[in-house]
Structure formats: structure tokens, C-alpha cells
Design a protein around this nucleic acid. Structure first.
Length: 940
RNA sequence: GCCUUGGUGGCGGAAUUGGUAGACGCGCUGGAUUCAAAAUCCAGUGAUCGCAAGAUCGUGUGGGUUCGAUUCCCACCCAAGGUACCA
């Protein structure tokens, strides 16, 4: 009987679905294990072979854990809000919900045909109102909270109001905007409701503020920093400009330190942790106040080297610094204005790419050195960024290379404050240099000097120690249609929350998905988008009277809102009274294994950690890190194919004949090229839409057109996308699963090349044959006792697979299966005692064939719950070893020796061997190294 | 520049604590089967020299430690990813 993979796979996929084989229970006597994939955005293009890589790995892990007796939660869903569906809606008028629905259907079909063991009863979709009502609910919780620095956690904002009522904000130590005034309880009570609300907004964990944002005019929306790549939008590659807008922000900065500390206790890849650390960008130093000479103004600088303060010879402000205008002297006015203007015209990108040019202008003003009282000239320069620190630096040219370059360029003083350091060529940035010429800190090393100077600054009220972060609060508004609406309306400009009992606040219908003609977000097109506080319903905009009917927020939430908590929802996906039930949360707690791409390092994976910590603070979840272990799967690259068109001619030359001719390489669809890089010229002509190409001349080499190859990212535009559907159809899902794993280490990027697929497919056929090992090809196994050799093969494989799965080394377990099947085939093994455990071993990797053979072996229940074979060391114990005999480290021959032999006996046997005599060629052996069970090395 | 990861046959990639480098698969070569093909099976396959036995070289480069180094140490080169006038 042949291996009919199509029938077998369809049969078992249906079986799993009908029997709910992979449904996880929220109560179980088994230990729990939660395996999570990063859920996909259902794009119109469907899945390509790169997408399932991580899913296959996590599926193997989930199935393995089930065999090992765990209650496994392995869910899947869709991150279904997002730009492409909306762009498509703009172009075609099709409602994004409809496009999304269709795309999800395609995804589901593609996922199903690969045979994943998902518990689909827990599916989530971020665009489903039953899901996003809880996203809105979490937003409300954030709005109703502030961050108490003393308790180091988020607390209800009502507690803050209570304190304000009793004693104002003088003793409050909370994360807040920098411009919060100190006020008493009397002032607080005297403020109007609106005034109070404005103060509270400065403490809330989500707040409305006028912020400088990355505005993308082409997309009509703001973008987060991580949505911008090389100064243009990640999606579409459109230019991005800085613009001030009123936006919702998330006070993620309150969590900067905890997000940093939390990395210590989670098992995530080092590069990923590093990029999060980098992104958070903690630096320790001091804030120092400088007075402006002859003016009643002062400004602060942040420095990591307060110990070098006696080396300050000038100050540099960012051109955008608010003080620039106030302190510039009349005779410098023109020059400064010109410079500020010139800088503002330069795009961020310009400023970034041009790092070598030194520019700046003297303001004419002087600061007063806080220790020496000397005059320090104040300059402006675009190497100082308004967005980092205070937008001002104290320049220490002898200790900082940029300050040094600036000083050299403008002929400013470079006083040396380091003992025995030559600064004639460059600055001394070495922290071990001893401080000199610096009053009371002379002679100290940097660490001591920093402590001493901060003490002194705090004593004299000049400055204080400070930890600065690069992390900014996250902008949370998008001017889009296809996202979660904010449960917020505006009472005369003051944001008010729509009570949680009215959630979900559903997306309104609009006629057009574009921004309105007066520049409002797409929700501005909605006719009914006002909140009536009397009926507590959404009503027509015509009824807005600013008394009881108010306009609703027009922005929507960003893509990362829904994905910041979905892992909790899976635990209890159908709960209608809570975002996730307490019991479910207590049972599942956190994700044991999370698999996904590294591109989310500073986006999703940082925001979701932030939300989880917040939910934890408010007692809503039991743990403050939601994923114990995370694995990044590497990208599968496409192997693009190229044809070469002679420049200026309608002629294509085979790659082998290009030589020195001037040619233009053109991408050609990889499906038209065979494994030997030959192009199907006729099909190429047939498929092209270009008339000219159809008439083109093809210069062949020996009757063949050979294409050029290059490994690139898999993408539609490069015509190198390989669709998993074809592979499932031609080779089967089990082959696809095995092949994707066999390709190489999970975490490494690797090129897709279909050429090798016949190898794993052949393996499955061989495996099938092992169970149908007779002339007629009928299934048969024998109940005879297994031989020592057969048991050895089995147990060696069990050991290897256990180790490999623990190390996420799936590629090597596939080869160990091949070895096992090769060996058993050679032994003509047909013993149930071997073949039954063997198929359980393979089942996580190739579940369909495993189920089929399991059934043939006489089992009525799914193999999914079969016990994993237990490794027995005793089967591997050997009495002899084929020792490699080396001479001076070079292996020359092998010798089979009993493992019981003593060191002396081994030495005697080896030295007596004639090959040893030959190798030594008359020399005498000086020494014999004997490592029992490993090697024998003769030194001579 | 900085951080991280990596560099092994024609290709994807193996190699436990330093112990037979190249497992497994692809490709290639030869053979069996077949009218032929597909499929399947068998043998060979790092390079160079040699009829062979065998020898020499070989894990990015150069050095070191060691009886022995793909593995450890030092310096450098290259590639990929992240990040950046971060004070």
C-alpha cells in the first residue's frame, strides 16, 4: 500500500476538528504548559513558506509536551486591525471588516492544511468588538491610574485626588509631566473641575498632550518611532515630518526601570534583551543648573560626567531650546536666527546622515560656572538634540570627542583636567584617567569624583544625581479608521471617559475611509459619533449641544493596543464579564514558551511587557512578566531568479553567456525556474503582461536559458515567494513540517530552496514502508521480541529527540529520525516493540502519518495523548569501543577494545599493534594519552 | 562608531564537558531494475598527489595555550541584525 499523504492528512485534520483533540481545559490535574505564537496580521497575500516556520516549531513543542503529560494551551488568533485592510478600503470602498474576514478565511485554510494542534475554540481577533471592548477597558484602567514612585507601582487616580484634597501635591512622588506646579489643598479645592482635570492629566498613565509627533502626510497618520525605518514610513516608504499635535500618550517612561529590571528574570534571546536595553537607554549622571550671566534665567544640563565640570569651557544648546531666543544678544541675533532657521529646515534624516559637518553659532550670552564663577560662553549647535536630556549640554572638550571637535572648529579653549593625559590630538574619554586642576576633586578617579561632586552639588543646591532614560512616552493615537475607538468624549475640550458598562464602543460606519476635507481623521466622516450623557448611547452628530451631547474622540488606537494583552485573553477567550477570568489567570499564569520574530523587539515586546506590569500593579494579573521564555525564529529568505536583458535591446541572455556585456537584471518568477536554474522560456513569455517581453529574443546556452540567483527577503515584488499550498499538495503537510525544520537551526535566517525537499519526502515514504514491509506492501508488525540492536537504535533516538527539543534543535532530530529509519530498515525490523514507540517519537513532527500508523497499530484514540517513550540508559551500554588511535593528535587508525581494560593493558595492546610500529617509524613513544571511552593518543 | 550574532565541502547544515571534522539531506558520478521513464535500490563523493597502499593540506586570517583546538585565549578581516551626534 502506497503512502497516500493527501488522503491521510485530510482524514486526520477532519478527525482533530470533529473530536476537538487539542481543546485545552482550564482545570486539570496535569501540570500546565502554555505555548504561544505571535499571532499573524491576516494580509491579503496569504501565508508564504516563511510564516509557518515558527508555528511548526511551537506546534512540535506543544505536541511533545502533551505526550509528556502536560495540559497544553496552544492557541491562535489574528491581529486583525491594521493599515493594509484600510488602504484597500480607501481604494475599493470595501469595508475593512469584510476584507479582514476574507483574509482570515484564507489564513485559516492555510493553517489547517499544515496540521497545527491549535485549540481554535479560543481564537481571538483584535478587531472583534467582543475583544476590543476589553482593549478599551484596559485603556480606561490606565486612564484611571497614576504611577506612585514611592510604592513603585500604578495606583488608582482616586487615591491621588484624596491626597490632593487633604494636602495638595507637596508630598507626592509620582511619575508625571515636568511642568506640574506645586499646589496646596486650598489651591486644589479652588480650582474648577476643568482645571483639576488638567492637573490630573499630568499624572494619568494615559493622557492627552500636545506632542511633537512623526506625521506621515501620505498615510495621513502619526507613526511611532519603530514604524519609521531610515526616515521613511515602514509601510509604503513615505516621507515623515515632525509636527505638533494633540495626542493620547502612554506613560511608559514610568516603567523604564522596571522594564529594564524585568529583563533579568526572563529567558529571552540576548540580542533581543540588548535592543530593549538600548531602546530604554538608561544613563546615570547628574542634572546641573547653570545661571545665565546678567539675566534672571537659568537652564539645566544632564551629564554622565559631572566630575569633569571643571573642564567646562562652553555650553551648547539645541537650536530648538526655549532659552535661545531670550538670551541671544542683539549683535548675534541675525546669525542665531539664520542658524535656527537653517536647522529647522533640515530633516531629521539629513541631520542624521551628515554627522561629520560641525556647525554652530555663539549666542553672545554667558553662563556662570557654578563652582568657579567664571564666564562660560553659550553656543547653539545642532549636534545637541532637543529630544534627549534637557536639550543642553555642558561642553567639556578635553573629555568628550564631539565637544573637542566643536571647540577645535571654532577655536574655543580646551582646558585639560586630566593628570598626565595628552589631549593635543583628541579628547580623553577614558574613565580611568585621574582628575586634575579641579579644586576639591583633583587626584580622584572618575568614580570617586562623581560621587563627591554630586554630594557637593546637592549641598550647594547646584544640581543633583539623576538617572536619565532615552525612552519616550508612547504616542497612542492614530488618525485611522480600522482600529479600536477610544471610549472618550470631549466635554468642552476636556476628555471624559465613557463608562465601562457601555463597552464596547463600536466603530461607526463611514462612507469614506479617508481623512475629512478639513483634515480630521476618518472617524470625522461618521454621521453618528456623539455621546449622549442622558441616554448613554451613541447619537447623531446633529444633536451635539456641549451640554448633554458631546463629540466622541476621532482618533483610534494604534496597532499595538490589541496585541499588548492578547496572550491573557487566550486563557479565557469567551469570558463576557471580564477581560480574563481570575481563575483562568491563576491557572495558566504566563506563557511558558513564546515564539516569534525578532522584528518586534522594541515594539510589541516592549509595549506588552509594559501593559502586563500595569495590569499586575492593579491586581488584574498574577505575574508581571508574561513570557518566561522567548525564541526568535529566523527569517526564511527567498532565492530570487534573474533574467538578463541586454541594455537597449529586447534580448535576454542566459546568465552563463553574460560575460562583459552590459545587462539589466530583471526578477523572474521562481515558479518558472527548475532546480537546475533553467528558465521555462515559453511559460515566461506566456505569463508576462508585457507585450514587448513576449516578442523578446532569448539567447540560450546549449539550448537552455540559465537564470541568475540571489538570496533576498521573501516578497511579492521580488517574485521569489513560495506558497505552502503547493508543497502541501505535492508533498504533503508532514513533508513541509519536516522540511522547514530540517532546513537549519530555528533561530538562524536561511534561504528557502525547494531542491532538498525530496529528501524528507523520501524519508516519510521509507518510514511508511517500514510498517508495510512485505512483498504485497500490506501493513504488518510482529509481536516478536526486539533485538538488542533494534532497542539500541530506538533508545539512542529517544535520547536525542528529548535533548533536541529541550535545545530547540529541531533540525538535528529530523536527521536522527532518518538515521533510525535507515538503521531499522537495514535490520528489517518489524517489531511492534520498536515501531510503536518510534511513531510516537516522530508524531510531534509529522502528526498525520503518525496518527495513521498509530491507528493501524490498533489504537482507537488519537496518538496526541500517547505517552512519550522513556529513555533507558541500559540499552546503550556497550562492552567495547572502536577507539581512534592518534599519533601526535592525528587520527591514523581505529582499534576495537574492551571497555574493561585497564590503562596499562590498553597501552600495551596499542604499542604492540603493528600499525603503531609503522606509524612511529623507529621512534619510541614518549607518552600514551588514554581517555577511557574517547580516544588514545600516542606522543612520539 | 557601538552592541549582538555568525563565518565549516558544490549547497542546507552536523560535531556532547577540548578528543575520529564534514552526521543527515540535497546535488553530482557510476551501477542495478525497466522496452523506456518515473519510482526504488546499491556504491562513491572535502582538496591535492598517487595504479594502490598511503601521504600532505583543510573549519574566515594571523598568532598562542595543549598530547590533542571548529571548540579556549589574543589581534585582525568579512557578513547579517539592532542602534546612534544619547551629552
Amino acid at each position: 500500500m502506497k503512502y497516500h499523504f493527501n488522503e491521510i492528512e485530510a482524514k486526520w485534520q477532519k478527525f482533530w476538528l470533529e473530536n476537538e483533540t487539542f481543546k485545552a481545559e482550564n482545570e486539570s490535574s496535569k501540570p500546565k504548559f502554555y505555548v504561544l505564537d505571535m499571532f499573524p496580521y491576516p494580509s491579503g497575500a496569504g501565508l508564504h513558506v516563511g510564516h509557518p516556520l515558527g508555528y511548526i516549531a511551537s506546534d512540535i513543542y506543544a505536541r511533545y509536551k502533551r505526550h509528556k503529560g502536560y495540559n497544553v494551551l496552544h492557541p491562535q488568533g489574528y491581529d486583525s486591525f491594521g493599515l493594509p485592510a484600510e488602504q484597500y478600503a480607501i481604494q475599493t470602498g470595501q469595508h475593512p471588516a469584510k476584507t479582514t474576514e476574507e483574509n482570515i478565511k484564507t489564513y485559516r485554510r492555510q493553517l489547517d492544511q499544515i496540521g497545527f494542534s491549535y485549540d481554535w475554540s479560543r481564537e481571538v481577533r483584535t478587531s472583534d468588538p467582543e475583544y476590543y471592548r476589553w482593549t478599551q477597558w484596559i485603556f480606561i484602567q490606565l486612564f484611571e491610574s497614576y504611577y506612585c514612585n514611592d510604592a513603585d507601582q500604578a495606583r488608582p487616580i482616586s487615591e491621588l485626588v484624596e491626597v490632593f484634597n487633604q494636602e495638595g501635591n507637596q508630598s507626592i512622588n509620582a511619575a508625571c509631566d515636568e511642568d506640574v506646579p506645586i499646589f496646596s489643598e486650598i489651591q486644589w479645592k479652588n480650582w474648577t473641575d476643568v482645571e483639576q482635570e488638567m492637573v490630573l492629566a499630568k499624572y494619568r498613565l494615559t493622557y492627552l498632550s500636545e506632542t511633537e509627533v512623526n506625521w506621515c502626510p501620505e498615510l495621513g497618520t502619526v507613526l511611532a518611532n519603530d514604524e519609521i525605518v531610515n526616515g521613511v514610513s515602514e509601510r509604503g516608504g513615505f516621507p515623515v515630518v515632525r509636527k505638533k499635535m494633540k495626542q493620547w500618550s502612554m506613560r511608559i517612561t514610568a516603567y523604564a526601570q522596571r522594564l529594564l529590571d524585568g529583563l533579568e528574570k526572563i529567558d529571552w534571546p540576548q540580542p533581543l534583551k540588548d535592543s530593549q536595553r538600548n531602546w530604554i537607554g538608561r544613563s546615570e549622571g547628574a542634572m546641573v543648573r547653570f545661571k545665565v550671566k546678567n539675566l534672571n534665567e537659568e537652564f539645566q544640563v544632564f551629564t554622565t560626567r559631572p566630575d569633569t565640570i571643571f573642564g567646562v569651557s562652553f555650553m551648547t544648546l539645541a537650536p530648538e531650546h526655549e532659552l535661545v531666543e531670550k538670551i541671544t544678544t542683539p549683535d548675534q541675533q541675525q546669525e542665531v536666527e539664520d542658524y535656527v532657521m537653517a536647522t529647522s529646515k533640515r530633516s531629521e534624516r539629513d541631520r542624521m546622515s551628515d554627522v561629520k559637518t560641525i556647525s554652530g553659532v555663539f549666542t553672545g550670552a554667558y553662563a556662570v560656572h557654578p563652582f568657579t564663577g567664571e564666564d562660560v560662553p553659550i553656543w547653539i549647535g545642532d549636534y545637541v538634540l532637543a529630544s534627549y536630556g534637557t536639550g543642553a549640554v555642558m561642553a567639556v572638550p578635553c573629555g568628550d570627542q564631539r565637544d573637542y571637535d566643536f571647540a577645535k572648529h571654532f577655536g574655543l579653549e580646551i582646558p585639560n583636567i586630566f593628570k598626565d593625559q595628552d589631549i593635543s590630538e583628541s579628547a580623553c574619554e577614558d574613565k580611568s584617567a585621574v582628575i586634575a586642576n579641579s579644586d576639591f576633586i583633583s587626584g580622584m578617579d572618575a568614580a570617586t569624583a562623581i560621587r563627591r561632586i554630586i554630594d557637593e552639588m546637592e549641598k550647594r543646591g547646584i544640581g543633583q544625581g539623576k538617572i536619565n532614560y532615552r525612552l519616550r512616552d508612547a504616542v497612542f493615537s492614530r488618525q485611522r479608521y480600522w482600529g479600536e475607538p477610544f471610549p472618550v468624549y470631549y466635554d468642552n475640550g476636556v476628555p471624559r471617559i465613557i463608562d465601562e458598562k457601555h463597552l464596547p464602543l463600536r466603530l461607526p460606519e463611514v462612507e469614506k475611509y479617508l481623512p475629512t476635507s478639513d483634515g480630521k481623521p476618518p472617524l470625522g466622516n461618521a454621521k453618528s459619533w456623539a455621546w449622549c450623557t442622558k441616554t448613554e448611547t451613541v447619537v447623531s452628530n446633529d444633536l451635539i449641544d456641549q451640554k448633554s451631547v458631546f463629540p466622541i474622540e476621532l482618533n483610534t488606537m494604534p496597532g499595538w493596543a490589541g496585541s499588548s494583552w492578547y496572550f491573557n485573553r487566550y486563557m479565557d477567550a469567551r469570558n463576557r464579564t471580564s477581560f480574563t477570568g481570575k481563575k483562568a489567570l491563576e491557572y495558566w499564569r504566563d506563557v511558558d514558551l513564546y515564539i516569534g520574530g525578532s522584528e518586534h523587539a522594541t515594539g510589541h515586546l516592549l509595549y506588552s511587557r509594559f501593559w502586563q506590569k500595569f495590569l499586575y500593579d492593579r491586581g488584574l494579573v498574577p505575574v508581571d512578566e508574561y513570557a518566561k521564555k522567548l525564541i526568535n525564529q529566523g527569517m526564511i529568505l527567498g532565492t530570487s531568479a534573474f533574467v538578463y536583458r541586454l541594455e537597449g535591446e529586447n534580448t535576454y541572455v542566459s546568465q552563463t553567456l553574460v560575460g562583459d556585456q552590459k545587462v539589466q537584471p530583471i526578477h523572474v518568477d521562481v515558479s518558472l525556474v527548475n532546480a537546475s536554474n533553467e528558465l521555462d522560456v515559453e511559460a515566461f513569455k506566456r505569463n508576462t503582461l508585457n507585450k514587448e517581453t513576449r516578442q523578446a529574443r532569448f539567447v540560450l546556452d546549449d539550448g537552455k536559458y540559465i537564470v541568475g540567483r540571489e538570496v533576498e527577503k521573501m516578497s511579492k515584488s521580488k517574485y521569489n515567494v513560495v506558497n505552502p499550498d503547493d508543497i502541501c499538495k505535492n508533498y504533503g503537510a508532514d513533508t513541509l513540517r519536516l522540511y522547514e525544520m530540517f532546513l537549519g537551526p530555528l533561530e538562524q535566517a536561511k534561504p528557502w530552496n525547494t531542491a532538498g525537499i525530496s529528501g524528507v519526502h523520501g524519508f516519510l515514504k521509507k518510514l511508511w514502508k517500514l510498517y508495510h514491509n512485505n512483498e504485497e506492501g500490506i501493513f504488518s508488525v510482529s509481536d516478536a521480541e526486539a533485538t538488542t540492536e533494534e532497542l539500541k537504535t530506538l533508545h539512542k533516538t529517544i535520547k536525542k529527540v528529548d535533548e533536541d527539543i529541550a535545545n530547540f534543535s529541531f533540525n538535528t532530530s529530523v536527521s536522527s529520525f532518518m538515521i533510525a529509519v535507515n538503521e531499522l530498515t537495514a535490520m528489517k525490523c518489524d517489531k511492534r516493540a520498536i515501531l510503536e514507540p518510534l511513531i510516537v517519537l516522530i508524531s510531534p513532527y509529522a502528526p498525520h502519518i503518525a496518527e495513521e500508523l498509530w491507528e493501524k497499530l490498533g489504537h482507537s484514540k488519537s496518538i496526541a495523548s500517547a505517552d512519550f517513550p522513556v529513555f533507558e540508559e541500559s540499552y546503550l551500554i556497550e562492552s567495547t569501543k572502536e577507539y581512534p588511535i592518534s599519533f601526535n593528535g592525528k587520527m591514523r587508525f581505529t582499534l576495537e577494545l574492551s571497555l574493561d581494560l585497564s590503562r596499562e593493558e590498553v597501552e600495551k595492546i596499542v604499542l604492540a599493534d603493528e600499525r603503531t610500529v609503522h606509524q612511529l617509524g623507529g621512534r619510541t613513544a614518549k607518552k600514551v594519552i588514554f581517555v577511557p571511552g574517547k580516544i588514545i593518543n600516542v606522543v612520539g
